[in-house]
Design a protein around this nucleic acid. Structure first.
Lengths: 355, 355
DNA sequence: CTGTTAGCGCATTCAG
DNA sequence: CTGAATGCGCTAACAG
């Protein structure tokens, strides 16, 4: 590995000049500039940022701690974050805790030992991890992604799922549905749940407790909830699910119950994971701006890293959702006339929320 | 940020001793050890690995360059790789090229400037990128994941999809199918295609060219291929798809054509992405050992990083696939007796290939 | 077992 | 505009 001294020698200048060339601080004559460039490419020289960081205090490294990289949502955020970082000459050290708070804590320590300049984290799940984050935040900027459980010392970028949920329910109402079920959790996705209720009320629709099933947020839960809903006297004609996994479970259950989607039951999900487009039928869903989340998180961090005094207090940026209309929703089958045969479904790409 | 000197002062020893304590090289008395530990935790001291790397030549950083982190396959490999690395005290800098060779090249340079000790890469897509990798390999170990297109200077960990494909086709044959279609690509997944043909032949089955549709590897392709297959006089009773996306397309097409899966058409995919388990019906598929891939890649790198002289030449580790049987396959509807009603499908978790 | 010292590769003064 | 000198935080000999 050639060093800056090697470059200097080959270019007939001193290290100081090479350094100035590299950092862009201070003046370097065009002639020197040229010779240095030549030397660098001949030698295949690559600056050692670890060494540079010793004096500059900037490693060019950022840390991203996630709880589940397999989660497509997380993966896409990570992807966008990483690309945005690289565009600014930064690398991101990725640490997947696998949902284990202890691993997350270890990860934070590892990242700190690598002198990352800032941290982006998905919502912490334990008080200990939370404390580790607070401690870290005393040393460097930390921005949280997602829910509001992140300690308040950090900047935050979240998604206004509430308005997304509102759009979804409104859409269903406008299609003519009046018996709209909610399947989800009241805690994890409280915004969606509340939006569901308020939107219903805003349209003068009753909020039948029989149409609300609260539980976990996986496919299994969606499946069971649907079975239960249809065991009732007056089943819903539409379901708003708190996420796509649940929605998929609903579709699956409907299928085995012989209920056609969307003609007999409209289903709408949340997140717009890849799964959604591939479902049968392709799922109408509230899309999360995943790429934008990553980019925004980086932007927030970037500002904290800038020259501006650590001035401003924790900020929160809220991104909005977008309803992606595919083929899992239709007007309710009017009980008056016999319900039509399901239209033959065809492959159709709904617009994606690539931002 | 406290330094080792601060720790030394507080513990009443010298930096040398602190360093020995930290690295584990050389002896440190129990007494000193204790005082140092105390000082460290009181000060919240964290070793600066960038500084350490200056002398040790070891940054504790690894690089992972991927082409698509959103790809669930990649994400899971990355997750496993990262966790394995962290278990050894290493961090991994993740770089997503988004499929752009130029970005990939930039990424490699960025990683090198951060002095990563080794590189793990998914298959390169361009000659230039390939060259960059070869250049990098002169400086540090590089291990490739996936297909065999990776330059031969590197270690490689691949999956024996051929045997997986063989299992899949054999399974179909044992169920009684004789008209088994192949939908996929002959280039990208050549192993699978060849295995399809040879397995058919090995069982004395003809290899009807009308049952082979080659194209791209996405859902759309699967959909179209299926439509085409069923426009023929003698459609297949089973389809082996080169990946899950294609298989999903097949299922979708079958659904719109009014063909029941699995009673009228058996479908089998490849990869076992999350999608597969969530499909209707849950998809039987050839599972890739994604986590194992990541772990193995790390292990290979680890060995190269060890004291052993850079001795041995490029190695290739081949992992085997496993057939995950879910609900998308059944014996062919015997034309003799009327085909039975589709059994009501139920949620059922096939075994996962978590390793 | 432990203190001392000399770099590692680079960015910065500070004089020229 | 540029060279020489100093130190970043730590490890690795080397004497004690």
């Amino acid at each position: 590995m050639p060093t800056a001294y090697d470059v200097a020698a080959k270019a007939g200048v001193s290290v100081g000049t090479v350094s100035r060339y590299l950092t862009g601080n201070g003046y370097v004559s065009a002639a020197a500039r040229e010779r240095i460039a030549a030397a660098i490419s001949e030698l295949g020289y690559i600056q050692n940022r670890a060494a540079a960081s010793l004096t500059t205090k900037r490693t060019g490294l950022l840390g991203f701690v996630v709880s589940q990289l397999k989660n497509p949502f997380t993966a896409e955020v990570a992807s966008a974050l990483g690309q945005a970082a690289r565009a600014r000459g930064y690398g991101v050290v990725l640490a997947d805790s696998g949902g284990d708070p202890n691993q997350a804590i270890d990860a934070v320590e590892l990242l700190r030992s690598h002198e990352v300049e800032g941290l982006v984290v998905t919502p912490p799940e334990s008080p200990e991890y939370n404390a580790a984050l607070v401690a870290a935040a005393r040393t460097m900027p930390v921005v949280g992604i997602g829910l509001h459980t992140t300690p308040s010392v950090t900047d935050l970028v979240t998604v206004d799922t509430r308005s997304g949920a509102q759009q979804a329910v409104t859409y269903l109402i406008e299609l003519g549905h009046t018996r709209i079920a909610y399947i989800g959790s009241s805690t994890m996705a409280s915004g969606r749940y509340q939006a569901y209720r308020t939107t219903l009320e805003a349209h003068g629709l009753p909020c039948d407790p029989e149409l609300i099933v609260l539980g976990s947020l996986d496919r299994e839960a969606g499946h069971q909830a649907t079975t239960r809903l249809f065991a009732q006297d007056r089943p819903p004609t539409a379901v708003f699910a708190a996420n796509d996994a649940v929605a998929l479970g609903v579709v699956q259950a409907a299928h085995s119950l012989g209920i056609a989607v969307p003609t007999q039951l409209s289903v709408i999900g949340c997140d717009n994971v890849d799964l959604a487009a591939h479902a049968i039928p392709p799922l109408t869903t509230v899309a999360q701006p995943m790429a934008l989340l990553g980019q925004t998180a980086l932007e927030l961090l970037w500002q904290r890293l800038g020259p501006d005094p650590a001035g401003h207090s924790p900020r929160t940026v809220t991104l909005s959702c977008e309803l992606v209309i595919r083929e899992s929703c239709a007007p309710p089958a009017s009980p008056g006339r016999p319900s039509v045969q399901p239209p033959s479904e065809r492959t159709h790409h709904g617009q994606h929320a690539e931002s």
